[in-house]
Design a protein around this nucleic acid. Sequence first.
RNA 1: GGCCCUGUGGUCAAGCGGUUAAGACGGAGCCCUCUCAAGGCUCAAUCCCGGGUUCGAUUCCCGGCAGGGUCACCA
Length: 547
Amino acid sequence: MNMKKLANALIPDGDLLSPEEYEEIYPPRNLPKGVEVTRLAPSPTGFIHLGNLYSALADERVAHTTGGVFYLRIEDTDEKRKVDGAVESVIRSLKYFGIRFDEGAEINSSLNNYGPYYQRQREKIYKSFVKKLLEEGLAYPCFCTAEELDAVRASQTKSKETTGYYGKYAKCRNLTEEEIYDNIKAGKPYVIRLKSQGSIDNKITFRDAIKGDITVTENDQDVVILKSDGIPTYHFAHAIDDHFMRTTLVIRGEEWLSSLPIHLELHKVLGFNPPKYAHTSSLMKMDGDTKRKLSKRKDPELSLDYYRQAGYYPQAVVKYLMTVLNSNFEEWTLKNPDGDYKDFKFKIDKMGKSGALFDLEKLNDVSKTEISKLSAEECYAFLKGWVDEFGSEVDKSHFKEDGYLLKILTLIIGIGGKKRRKDIERAEQGVRLFDYFFDDTFDPDYSYRFDKATVNMVLDKFAAVYDTGDDNSEWFAKVKAIAPEVGFASEMSEYKSHPENFKGSVSDVAEILRIAITGSPNSPDLCTIMRILGKSRTVARLLKGKI
RNA sequence: GGCCCUGUGGUCAAGCGGUUAAGACGGAGCCCUCUCAAGGCUCAAUCCCGGGUUCGAUUCCCGGCAGGGUCACCA
């Protein structure tokens, strides 16, 4: 059979460049040893999720801690899954979490020497290599219809054989020259398949950067490399693109592990050195009593918008992910509480081999300690940003009173105290902490633990003596002074040694005041709250709190 | 079902043949204290099971079991 003629018939020459020319156009990047080139290669299906962020973070960290390059490639080979604006959305989402690309699709960079970065625009490159394989007899056209393939698969399943297009099932492998040309002439649609040289009797061991040595059987499937629309499949595009974009380390989900033999064979047949691979275990979630992969449909927490809407501090999400990605990161954080996570030495081989359960409680903890490191101004800006986008009209009106709000915030986050408070976990919950400072959101629950006479007496007496000018100790002295008048102990020690002699203690006096002022038995420093509220509002609330 | 990956407290996990089996989140308690938060201290809780190898296995080997992944002209 004249392969050259066949290759020409299948892939008309047009203006294809030769494989050698592509090697020249995309020369190896001139980088020192140890420097890694990584990439994020999403399909433009719309939104990017937590799993993408997780893997993007690993890619970005590896590239940037080694002084390498992190680029964005768009895998748009599946027309059906394309969504408009998806690429911008990917870039925007990652940027929100502080992750930037050095190169790639829609990235403005002088480094963009390895494009185009959209696979649909790389058709000629792929075809040049498909043609080469055709000429070498390492690929062939297949005219089987979907129905035929389904039927074969059904019978294979029934007889418990391995499914797929291989060996004796690879019908079109043996088509005569005449049959092929007849089919082409008849206008039958066709795909190009790899003529696999592998055998399942051969084992190959390769080293995964995360999982270590993995032994797999060679690929013997005549996989499709070029679809009937002339666009390559993922497998083929991966081999070509990661070779010519000179990726050194491919980090991807472990769901790809099983197609690794295909990729290895493709690289071999194409004459490429395969990149290093790191297969990451995916984020899991507890469903009933079994673990399962986080799912786009069922789990809202997979969407990155979920975190924006809930008002998580973006860096907290990143740091949480870092703790999952590299277990020694947390230890490092403890030693370097104020350190930038980018100074941490990220190691790909420190990544967990098994899928981690996504732990929302831990995220919450990371988030509140992250927020507790912010200055009052930074925290204010963060909360205001959230309110502007997701807050109610009432929230927005509160945020117009900058000075007042900043005072409250200083109290809530505990600036000035020995240690910062960690009350704000995320913006959505944090802004609610301001509610009792504004009359329109003050929603008290007057559940006093004492009788009416006692409560009202405490409230009246304190309203009569309160003065905004009091400092903390003067204020507390006044609270103490009321205690004996209502039969309470003014010293805690007194109360503790003889509780039977008293109806309550100073702390109970404070509780009554606190409920009247804030509407709840718990709050930060009451004295400061009253001062922020001001005398008239304080007194009004004390009197309003009477029952 | 075939093939591949994984298996240390409730969760994330250190560990690489001999350890009182780290640490963090969560839980319980105590201290501090005008309450809460924060902080400090303390406690409870783990090596999937069975065989080997070895003086000795959480660690190495084999076999189970369990969980996950994958078997497309989707990526």
